[in-house]
């Protein structure tokens, strides 16, 4: 009886040890099989292990220098579906430079300001930053792997300050993820194996490599943004966080860095809080916590020399201007832009 119990316990321990050892043994083998090229260190070592990164878009700096815009607009699809830059340019009598990235968050906006706008040396009259509710102090919003790739467009080889803020923000357990990624070079394996998996069905269907590449490109376009239905649910999902705390979040966000860098560069930031989707007859409901948060945010940025504008409750922005979720319809962009210009007219003079 005792021996069978001991055997069962040994079996259990063996099973667990084998489970943990097998990945440690096979990952170097697979990594040797892959190209073996060492990956460059990431600019966010607090958040991720080494990975293949996309190129920094230095062309944006060149474009800004060439364009010498009077106003710059930074943001995600909230800005993209609101601002008609041509109309704004007409009204303001100067060129507008949109630096927009759908699916981006405050880390992207900070890097766009620092590495594109300020690095270009241009002196626009104002830099608009469009955001929703708590975006500006919610650093981790859209920093997950699904969205993180877009940071590559704006990040330099090292981003010490951003990394330091991220390190303060992430939970201690996340370091286990980073350790695993680093020690097993998981990204190197992914780099080799993921395309192989994605390629397998195409190889079954189209033997010719040239035609296959063409098909993959066409298929990606077929499933791309232009064919998507309105993403109401996806946008509605961005909701009031139940634990909104401006004072607790602001120092672990990029907002102080944005304000500091802009001040040092002699730029004026204008933060535009967009109105979420209203109901049929009312502005969108807001919790008391959110109202307090916004009031504190307004005081914080204006004390530091920035402009704050809140669309919420603007009677002009009615439900019929909205398309899906918090996005505005194409037909409403001109009206929105003119309204924004009128609301901020003193700052446009």
């Amino acid at each position: 009886m005792a021996s069978s119990r001991a055997r069962a316990a040994t079996g259990l321990i063996t099973l667990i040890v084998l489970t943990l050892i097998v990945p440690v043994i096979i990952t170097p083998v697979i990594n040797r099989w892959t190209a073996g090229r060492s990956l460059p260190p990431t600019y966010l070592p607090a958040l991720e292990g080494p990975r293949e990164r996309g190129a920094f878009q230095s062309i944006r700096v060149t474009e800004l220098r060439y364009l010498q815009p009077g106003y710059v607009v930074i943001g995600d699809s909230m800005a993209g579906t609101r601002v008609d830059e041509r109309r704004l340019g007409e009204l303001a009598g100067t060129a507008i430079a949109p630096l927009l990235q759908p699916g981006s968050g405050s880390a992207f906006w900070y890097l766009a300001l620092k590495n594109w706008v300020i690095a270009s040396g241009i002196k626009p009259r104002m830099v608009f930053v469009f955001f929703r509710d708590t975006n500006l102090t919610d650093l981790m919003f859209r920093l997950d792997p699904q969205f993180r790739w877009s940071l590559d467009l704006t990040a330099l080889e090292r981003e010490e300050e951003l990394n330091a803020v991220v390190a303060r923000r992430i939970r201690p357990l996340h370091r286990v993820h980073v350790f695993l990624d680093r020690s097993m070079a998981v990204d190197a394996m992914r780099r080799r194996l993921e395309p192989a998996v994605a390629e397998w069905p195409a190889e079954r269907l189209i033997p010719s490599r040239r035609r296959r590449t063409e098909f993959m490109s066409l298929m990606n376009a077929r499933l791309g943004f232009d064919h998507l239905r309105p993403m109401t649910a996806a946008d509605i999902q961005f909701d009031d966080a139940p634990d909104i705390d401006f004072d607790g979040d602001v120092e672990d966000s990029v907002l102080p860095l944005m304000l500091r860098d802009a001040r040092q560069a002699g730029l004026t930031l204008c933060f535009v809080r967009v109105q979420r989707r209203p109901t049929a007859h009312r502005p969108p409901p807001q919790s008391r916590e959110l109202e307090t948060y916004v009031a504190t945010l307004r005081a914080y940025v204006t004390e530091r020399g920035a402009i704050f504008h809140d669309d919420t409750g603007d009677p002009v922005l009615t439900i019929d201007m909205y398309e899906d979720g918090d996005h505005l319809a194409r037909h409403a962009r001109r009206q929105y832009t003119e309204n924004l210009y009128n609301r901020l007219r003193p700052h446009f003079q």
Binding site: R7, G11, L18, R190, E194
Partner: peptide, 26 residues
């Protein structure tokens, strides 16, 4: 029994390796 245990360990280890490599980014 030992062979079976080794096979089970190998299978669980491969599952763990697959999770590390193929887990969805989303």
């Amino acid at each position: 029994p030992w062979s079976r245990m080794a096979l089970q360990g190998l299978a669980c280890g491969l599952a763990l390796a697959a999770i590390l490599v193929f887990r969805s980014r989303t």
